[in-house]
Design a binder for these strands. Structure first.
Lengths: 135, 135
DNA sequence: TAAAACTTGCAACATTATTGCAAATTTAGT
DNA sequence: ACTAAATTTGCAATAATGTTGCAAGTTTTA
């Protein structure tokens, strides 16, 4: 499974990449760099984690999620990795209780009417509240 | 002007706070910590800038803007500072050309229909593209 | 104007991220 | 399966970013 995703994206299949990809496949929530480091522990160097995430973002295997604090979150979105390119026009949900960030793949970001002179290109939308598990 | 805002928020009127508030009033775009440091230069310590921004956020004079990269942006929004409390349910626009982030105070974030079990509380929305100045 | 309250700068420290280079691993060609 | 080429990793060094305690300085209050 992980091997396929890596091969499809023309990346060498290495232990580090498989392990990190596994992590994303196992969770449906988004992950912060720190989560990944906590999990991989002594297995790999911090630098490898940074570089792996960067590579995955470049290849479109994972995508960045904006946050209100300074943290960077990464998430693997189902459709995207199947198809090999990004469709990240979905809403992200941050649960105030469990603090997980979830990709709502089926909730499309609505278009908004911008003031005169503004031309839209890409949109991001995040909703916080209580998720289905915590309700 | 700056004195009034500070007083209204029960903050001591100091040179640092006035200078930083001036910066926000002069720009309509959002500012990163680094922008402020670049501007204030040797005038104040880094720590003072951090603490001033934190205080302003707590008082609701400025608000944080989420970004896709790891940067933290702050912006003063017109209505808010007049009234002394937050109405930050507006869309933020990031220009791909000049890279400015602008509060579209008149563009309200639309409501979206969430999947079963999810309860919304707060929303954020960012649109990138070309701004009115760069078109 | 003096005391109390608050703010600032400094120094030290913690965390997070980036880069170059050599060693190790993976891939591709035969 | 074996070797050369390409890629990836770990290490070390460095940079950038953010935090804390405390003493000195400034602002506010009465």
């Amino acid at each position: 499974m992980t091997d396929d995703i890596l091969k499809k994206n023309k990346l060498s299949v290495t232990d580090g990449r498989k392990k990190i990809l596994d992590l994303f496949l196992a969770r449906d929530g988004a992950l912060a760099h720190a989560d990944i480091e906590r999990y991989t522990g002594e297995m790999f160097d911090r630098v490898t984690v940074y570089r792996t995430l960067q590579t995955f973002v470049e290849k479109g295997i994972i995508h960045l999620i904006p946050t209100t604090d300074n943290s960077i979150l990464y998430a693997l979105c189902k459709e995207n990795c199947e198809e090999g390119h990004h469709h990240d026009n979905h809403v992200h949900f941050i649960c105030d209780v469990c603090n997980k960030t979830i990709c709502l793949d089926d909730v499309t970001i609505p278009k908004v009417k911008l003031p005169k002179g503004f031309t839209p290109n890409h949109s991001e939308m995040m909703v916080s509240g209580i998720c289905a598990d915590c309700k």
